[in-house]
Design a protein around this nucleic acid. Structure first.
Lengths: 340, 340
DNA sequence: CTGTTAGCGCTTTCAG
DNA sequence: CTGAAAGCGCTAACAG
């Protein structure tokens, strides 16, 4: 079975081994077209004897279908995107497609990086594309969307020819705010992430603020560049604030806030109610008990892939806007405000 | 710039647009061979005008080099592998290579899944391969290692023709055991993961047991199928055990153990000292303060890629066995045993 | 049902 | 420095 390096067997080798023509081999191996049982048998034996693996390049080049979908995710070190990626991969595999993932790996700003990743995917002749990279401006992807069917995930996208699947961030923000309001909190700090950094995180923050204010209560806005900067924003204000609750843009930010509290001998929910956002991965551990809003990541990934493949397979041609809802997770980090 | 779907421009389109031959276009765009400045200029203008993206399939087919390395990881939902993947991708990008990742996605047993993923990578004509899928038996990858240069990560692999890069799990296990022994613990429970499930997790557990026993102290072995089953193993024994410390195979297991303690009104380090293993990702948050052993994931990923690319680029031909060491992380979940 | 033939888009000789 | 020509491994008509 072992052969000299760089000399992978081709259908010609198999044809010779099996004593048939290369087209017979192609038909037997790719499942397209009819072959006699004996031929199929001979070909398969030869193939496995030689350890044959089809050359996807040659196959894709001629058939211009690769049975592969490209997935562009923002930053795979973030559990959110890692889980999304896995959900997509599973959904694609179930329908007989491979996925190729490109990620910016490192949460830096700048468009160059995701754009380069996008071009890489396109160059791979993917049959379809899912873009889950909220910071990539839509104009940048437009040139590609009529070259390869595209679904935009995690962002409402209204360009013609694109289907988008996204979460209702405002609903989550409101739900969490309602929970705190229901608990009797009257002065609530909201860590608001820069819009440039994350549209979703910003949107949920805005919804929280609006809801608190609509209820006639006080919303104190603490602006942060991003969720990972939460500690720096909370630390200097925590000692002389009169808020009784702190709403974070993500569960990761909750961890930073809890640490600030701990260092001052304070804790949640005793001194402050603290809420997060995301609700999956390691930080969803019951031990932490973060009161949060669970994003429907799996559903988001699965829906994106399903809609994409439906389109690829001609089952539908219509663009759609699908908004998915998450669910409230009652943890132990938020309860009635203690301080007067 | 937009064109009809499925009609991506080819070098022929550019050649026509620029008024040169397709070979000139190829040379200008691929950087191979000499071209006059004017030609290059014309070609580049035409290319960007048409939104040209090279067809990696055609390119790879003829040149049989794809500048792509394949990465096979066990399960990307595990932070360990997610971080490893990112480290590899970054290291590869720095040296001008793309990565294509395949993952088993879902931690199930069985070889079929990773094997299929492996074949997919090979079919993509990757220039090199990193296998970080400890459960894939080495015999399975042997047929491919002389077809594509391979580095095995996360496992000591002594097959000829393979370089492997792995962590010294025993060192980590011993270091943590020493820490507890130094703290004065005399009866220590060690959650031992099944060898079938994870060789690394098993190895570190064995090292812990040996060290404790070598010190003349009592090692109580709690066998668990895998680290995620830690709670089920600890819960029934926690109320009437006389151990003062619990050593977990991973940080994730620590979370499960801490939750069991919490539900009984106990905590670490007050009632039990608890140690983990991994030390990165969300569970490395200072707020949790897990006493653990940090695995050198980034270094592991980077080293694997560097050794692979060195070989691809002919800088070395020797197989190597590289053992990397992690580092002790002193958290707050382990201190002197309280109970008599 | 089978073999023959013509490319897919690109790089890479080879002459000019 | 440039163009023409020959394939890379495979599939998809097309005849037999």
């Amino acid at each position: 079975m072992a052969r000299a390096r760089g000399k992978a067997p081709t259908i010609l080798d198999i044809a010779a081994e099996a004593g048939v023509s290369k087209s017979a081999v192609s038909r037997a191996l790719s499942g397209q077209g009819e072959v006699s049982p004996e031929t199929r048998e001979k070909v398969e034996r030869a193939a496995s004897k030689l350890g044959y693996v089809a050359n996807a390049m040659a196959r894709g080049l001629v058939s211009s279908r690769t049975k592969t979908v490209g997935v562009l995710v923002r930053d795979i070190t973030r559990p959110y995107y890692a889980w999304l990626q896995v959900a997509m991969q599973l959904a694609a595999e179930e329908r007989g497609y491979q996925t190729v993932t490109a990620t910016s790996a490192g949460d830096d700003l700048g468009v160059a990086d995701p754009l380069r990743a996008l071009r890489h995917l396109v160059s791979l002749q993917i049959d379809g594309l899912v873009v889950a990279s909220p910071r990539l401006p839509s104009e940048q992807i437009v040139p590609y969307i009529d070259r390869v069917p595209t679904v935009v995930a995690c962002r409402r996208e209204t360009s013609r020819g694109v289907t988008s699947v996204f979460c209702d961030n405002a609903d989550g923000g409101r739900t969490l705010a309602d929970h705190l309001l229901g608990l009797g909190h009257e002065r609530i700090a909201i860590i608001l992430v820069d819009q440039q950094y994350s549209l979703s995180q910003h949107a949920r923050g805005i919804a929280m603020i609006e809801r608190v204010r609509a209820a006639g209560k006080q919303a104190v806005v603490w602006e942060a560049g991003n969720d990972r900067g939460a500690a720096a924003v909370v630390a200097p204000r925590i000692d002389d604030t009169d808020v009784t609750a702190i709403m974070c843009p993500t569960d990761e930010a909750v961890m930073a806030v809890l640490e600030v509290l701990r260092q001052r001998g304070k804790s949640a929910p005793e001194d402050f109610a603290v809420t997060g956002f995301d609700g999956f991965g390691p930080l969803a551990a019951p031990y932490l008990g973060i009161t949060t809003f669970r994003q429907p990541v799996e559903e988001l990934g699965r829906t994106s892939i399903d809609l994409l493949l439906d389109r690829l397979e001609g089952k539908t041609h219509q663009d759609r806007l699908v908004e998915l809802r998450g669910s409230f997770v009652e943890g132990r980090t938020a309860s009635r405000g203690q301080r007067p």
